[in-house]
Design a protein around this nucleic acid. Sequence first.
DNA 1: TTTGCTTATTCGCATATCCGAATATATCCA
DNA 2: TGGATATATTCGGATATGCGAATAAGCAAA
Lengths: 122, 122
Amino acid sequence: MAIPSLDELDLLHSHICTAVGDPKRIQILYALYEQPRNVSALTEALATPQPTISRHLTVLRDRSIVVAKREGQSVVYSLSTPKIIEILDAMRQILRDSLDHKSNLLANEDSSEAITGETITV
Amino acid sequence: MAIPSLDELDLLHSHICTAVGDPKRIQILYALYEQPRNVSALTEALATPQPTISRHLTVLRDRSIVVAKREGQSVVYSLSTPKIIEILDAMRQILRDSLDHKSNLLANEDSSEAITGETITV
DNA sequence: TTTGCTTATTCGCATATCCGAATATATCCA
DNA sequence: TGGATATATTCGGATATGCGAATAAGCAAA
């Protein structure tokens, strides 16, 4: 895949990256990965006020990351594609790798030459 | 991979997701994917003030997404792992899929039942 | 040490984002 | 239609984030 143009890069950011820019939204995505749910079910599952859930769902829906389907009085949301979960899981893997690496640094296995960043304890 | 705990989810967000939450940082990541570069080279490549570049690099370095290595007066940055680019490319694929899907909707191929979000023209 | 080059940090401000509270809209059913 | 349930939206304020400008800090060569 080629290096993205500046335009594509801005789209990538505004369209996808900002969507995963909030913990509640990530939580919603995993909840919908388990199974499609309506707003009430999400409100309950995340123990979060309904307007907050709806606002986050609007962000995800505007970006076509989730799709909404009305069923009677309620609206059932589901993931447009499970690919978004693959991406989040890949991020989790990077997270684990970097935490592993840092704990190795702390254990003094290799502290040569590299200027390291912040260290997080889990 | 199991559903993440709330703690892991917050780490995922604060540690990785926020890192790609700015267009300049994404641009930096692709620039470093092409080749490791020092701050001056990045400043030139992105046509962006040096303090801005350094601030973004600090964010990425604190999260161990890039590594810094001093070479004389300059500091050469490189990706900790190309996995971050795989992730960004996967996001670009989602972006393309969703734009395709929307242009199909506009072309009236299938506009049944789903409540759709915003439509973007590229 | 002084000078010059390179990178990092700080400060103040402008903007963006999120939330709680209140309210509006939509749908169903009696 | 009117009431009940479910979802969406708006408003105001608090917090976070990014930038320009200025400056500090690190390193090399003379």
